[in-house]
Design a protein around this nucleic acid. Structure first.
Length: 505
RNA sequence: GAUUCGGUAGCUCAGCUGGUAGAGCAUCUCCCUUUUAAGGAGAGGGUCCUGAGUUCGAACCUCAGCCGAGUCACCA
């Protein structure tokens, strides 16, 4: 059933019809040539008022102040807003004043797109504006935009702030809340910086399957779908790790992919069902080497985005200048709790957890308990970028055993602002050990762990042909974007975060 | 999942102890040729999230539900 139109929607539809009747069809086909952007006019005309004497600009009408035979309005293009001055007898030099009296004054609404020609000038009050000599309607808007106004002190009136509305109608959010666009431009820049950084090192950007017959490379519950012709179950990838390693087997020495991954798990301000990771695999390297690469890369990201390595995130100033502090997991726990757990068995660990008032599931093994202690007592306190290294083997079935520490693997996570933003290891390339690790995961799965990995015979086959020693990395782009743009929620760095349907049946 | 707060005009919000639904902006009509949260005069606009209950009477109280936000938990 079609929704009944609001009064304002009815009025805009009849305005549209009236424009057509007057001979101003407001959805023209032909190119409207522009030669200037708002931001440039405003900055450059201030320095040289002989410039911009013949401009052609286009954008959305964002406000209109009519004073009889003359009017001021604001035009917003992709770079910002600029005031325009429209005078009746300039845009309507002949007898017929319809374009001003009817189209501009009455039928044109906030949100409509127009194209103008004219010249830059400065008003009596000193605002750089465009004196319009001709005006063309480029698109009639049929729904009213929220009218957000900013007063002299910079206070925002009638702001479009309801998060639900902002996320559901991001296009409106982008139109009326300029900082939103800035956040997304920064995100794009962040991705570009990383891509350039990796390209400069001559690693190869690749694409691997999103629809996978067997999901792997992470501990997570997948989305399941079905292919009709093959009549088979497929999963949306939870990670692309195993495919990228197969490319290393195939002879690439450095590959990376910006990958949308999908995890069928809870949602929160740090979790969206689909999210972006960049994964990188480089042959003949180890995790120590990778720490240096990540430091260099993040320092560059901060510099490119902010011109400094220091980034404000909430109350904290985070400094991405390398090198970053490094703790082994045991050192971090000892530092923050005073407990040396490096020599403890499972019973001993449980005792420590109890002493620290951390609830541990009865089914949890040694690795899980250590991870819980770290998660509860250390992670949230690590604000500055910090490497945590050498994780329990049970938590990391794809990482190589530590070269000299029993029970651990060569792995690091980078913690920043109390959250993990990167994860890396010296990749496990011993196929015998890898098969055993998968089998251990199968056992966990049989015991009811629905995030346990499943055995991937094709991956095992691949590494049985031989995978050179390799270092692998995953960086959560969304979480890094949150930090780099000082955003409190993942929804603020995703154009279209997942939402419940608006009208449930 | 737990818990707190919220859902009233296109937007932002007010609405007292239960008694005819309010403001600003936006919209409509009129005036105004350098305004800028333009201004002046007038007007229209509501499923008070949904459903049930209590009551003479519910935006307001009760119960159930839907949706959202914050915090916590889960989640590499």
């Amino acid at each position: 059933m079609e929704k009944t139109l609001s009064e304002q929607e009815e009025i805009r539809r009849s305005a549209l019809q009236e424009m057509i009747n007057l001979g101003f069809y407001p959805y023209p086909s032909e190119t409207f040539e522009t030669n200037a952007f708002a931001i440039n006019v405003k900055s450059e005309f201030a320095k040289d008022d002989t410039k911009y004497q013949k401009v052609s600009m286009a954008g959305r009408l964002m406000s209109k102040r009519v004073m009889g035979k003359a009017s001021f309005a604001e035009l917003m293009d992709s770079t910002g807003r600029i005031q325009i001055y429209v005078s009746r007898d300039i845009i309507c030099p002949d007898e017929n004043k319809d374009l001003y009296n009817k189209v501009f004054k009455k039928l044109l609404d906030i949100g409509d797109f127009i194209g103008i020609e004219g010249h830059a000038f400065t008003t009596k009050v000193g605002e750089i504006s465009i004196h319009v000599s001709s005006l063309k309607v480029l698109c009639k808007s049929l729904r009213p935009l929220p009218v957000v106004k900013t007063d002299e002190e910079g206070n925002i009136h009638d702001g479009f702030t309801d998060p639900e509305q902002r996320y559901r109608q991001r296009y409106v959010d982008l139109v009326v809340n300029p900082h939103v666009k800035q956040t997304f431009l920064q995100r794009t820049k962040l991705v570009n910086t990383i891509r350039t950084f990796l390209n400069d090192r001559e690693y190869t950007e690749v694409e691997t399957p999103i629809l996978q017959p067997i999901y792997g490379g992470a501990a997570a519950r997948p989305f399941k779908t079905h292919h009709n012709t093959l009549d088979m179950t497929l999963y949306l990838r939870i990670a692309n790790e195993l495919y990228l390693k197969k490319l290393i087997v195939g002879g690439f020495e450095g590959v990376f992919e910006f990958a949308k991954d999908f995890r069928n798990e809870g949602m929160s301000r740090f979790h969206n069902p689909e999210f972006t990771q960049v994964e990188l695999y480089v042959a003949y390297k180890d995790y120590i080497w990778m720490m240096e690469l990540v430091e260099e890369m993040l320092e560059k990201v901060a510099m490119d985005l902010h011109g400094t390595t220091k980034v404000m995130v909430g109350e904290n100033e985070i400094d991405f200048q390398r090198p970053y502090k490094r703790y082994t997991m045991f050192e971090a726990i000892e530092e923050f709790t005073g407990e040396d757990i490096s020599e403890l068995d499972e019973a001993g660990l449980r005792e420590v957890a109890k002493k620290l008032d951390i609830h541990i599931e009865a089914s949890a093994g040694k690795g899980k308990i250590i991870d819980e202690i770290f998660g509860e007592k250390c992670e949230k306190l690590l604000i500055q970028p910090t490497y945590i290294t050498d994780y329990p083997v049970e938590m990391s079935p794809l990482a190589k055993k530590h070269r000299d520490k029993e029970g651990l693997v060569e792995r690091f996570e980078l913690i920043c602002n109390g959250k993990e933003i990167a994860n890396a290891y010296t990749e496990l390339n011993d196929p015998i050990d890898q098969r055993k690790r998968f089998e251990d995961q199968m056992e966990l799965g049989a015991r009811g762990d629905d995030e346990a990995m499943v055995i991937d015979e094709d991956f095992l086959k691949a590494i049985e042909y031989g995978m050179p020693p390799t270092s692998g990395l995953g960086i959560g782009i969304d979480r890094l974007a949150m930090i780099m743009t000082n955003s409190n929620s993942i929804q603020d760095v995703l154009f279209f975060p997942q939402m419940r349907p608006e009208n449930p049946q």
